[in-house]
Design a protein around this nucleic acid. Structure first.
Lengths: 236, 236
DNA sequence: TTGCACTTTTGAACAGGTTCAAGAAATGTC
DNA sequence: GACATTTCTTGAACCTGTTCAAAAGTGCAA
């Protein structure tokens, strides 16, 4: 379960085809049977290729999972567009985006643990701070940038600039909660979203108050540090 | 890497002895060689017992890791006592405890990722919210209770009651950062601690202001929800 | 002492992720 | 078209976590 090998880039039309075949088969099986029951051997067999061939295109099972996560992320992006068109207040936009995130993720709750399990390991390609997942992270980060940029709230520039990162971090926290949420239909998570979004909205207003400038500056300095860390790791 | 089996309780003096032998050997090897290179076979061999025997006492490799984490936690507790005796302000107490936490964890930075990797999976016994790690969690939670109780800060009762949980959560966040911190001697993490502790102290003062009561109530309601989730899971 | 119920211990077997050397196919070059 | 090079594909082999049935040991009651 180590393997640093990257997914191999295809050099041939046929290779491209095979890679896509393996990936699609894998995604399908992951969806249908969950993580544990989707073995590399099973994927290879169902796709009609050899085990080694699967490993030629995807350096590890994690890489397949990453592809899976990428797809879920695309779904969320697409699902969020209407709300971002319609809503204009920061609060409403954030609420929609967060709820839709959970909606999108829900079918995979059962094996989401495994999904984020790997995410905590700095060496894992699934780690959301790591290089390998940079595209996925950039996409989801972009969503929060759009979310902030398109809102008509009056927010100081310094805060506005860092807000997307803060919200992204917040959204990771919610997902962590969701993973551990045993309630039916994940009602707790939705409730938590409602409450935290409300709270965040209040806090943002509060932080936008000129009187809060010193505290805000201090907090933002800290956030920038956090962000730098992400970037650094993304480089290596 | 599944296994729900618990560690078996020993029924005999000899069993007790064997269990301790295996555990000590495992901890030693984990410390010396890290996670990947410490295989169950290697532990069993070095301890001079059979592979199956190791599994008789520890249901999985994770259980061994948990024991490891437990020991580190004890070290931290012990290391924190002097500071908790000496310091009286909340800020100073928190700062000491957090810095000592990182000090204690530092020797294991290399494989800490794996350690907390498993922690993200709800099914894992290492998951800090799960039943299996309840003792460890209770211990580290107790530390933060002491931390708050022994401080002479003027804090509203409602906040004071939830503060230990909040600080525990905060401390988990810092550890997450630390895991990903590539800086030499983890200077970034220490800096982040300095900054966040300072900020937290300010926020606590702020939240203690009577004017903040409505926002505070709202925030605390949310925290209680979080805490309930932990408890619930700890039950099953 | 013998027999019984238990705990402890063993090692073989299994499963699944991963590696690798080598053959087959495709592509490019002259 | 023939050869060289690169890419694709294969399947066996390896490693490690985990399971399990059975052997060995232990203590205690009759």
């Amino acid at each position: 379960m180590k393997s640093a090998r990257k997914s191999t880039a295809t050099k041939t039309a046929k290779g491209e085809q095979t890679k896509a075949l393996i990936l699609n088969t894998a995604l399908e099986m992951l969806h249908e049977r969950g993580y544990e029951n989707t073995t590399m051997r099973a994927i290879a067999e169902k796709a009609g290729v050899s085990l080694g061939n699967a490993y030629h295109y995807f350096g590890s099972k994690d890489h397949l999972i990453q592809a899976f996560y990428h797809r879920v992320n695309e779904d969320h992006l697409r699902a969020s567009q209407p709300a971002l068109q319609k809503e204009s207040s920061l609060k409403a936009r954030l609420l929609s985006v967060m709820r839709l995130k959970i909606d999108t993720l829900e079918p995979y709750h059962e094996f989401a643990g495994v999904l984020f399990q790997t995410a905590a390991d700095p060496h894992s390609p699934l780690n959301p701070f790591a290089h390998a997942s940079a595209p996925v992270r950039r996409d989801s980060m972009q969503l929060f940038k759009d979310l902030v940029a398109g809102s008509k709230a009056r927010i100081p520039d310094d805060l506005r600039e860092e807000l997307p990162h803060l919200l992204w971090l917040y959204h990771m926290g919610i997902i962590l909660f969701w993973i551990h949420d045993p309630s039916r239909k994940r009602t707790r998570t939705y409730r938590l979203i409602d409450q935290t979004v409300d709270l965040l909205d209040k806090l943002i207003s509060l932080a936008s108050n000129p009187l809060m400038r010193p505290v805000r500056k201090k907090a933002l300095k800290m956030v920038v540090d956090l962000r730098d860390l992400e970037v650094e790791e993304a480089e290596d």
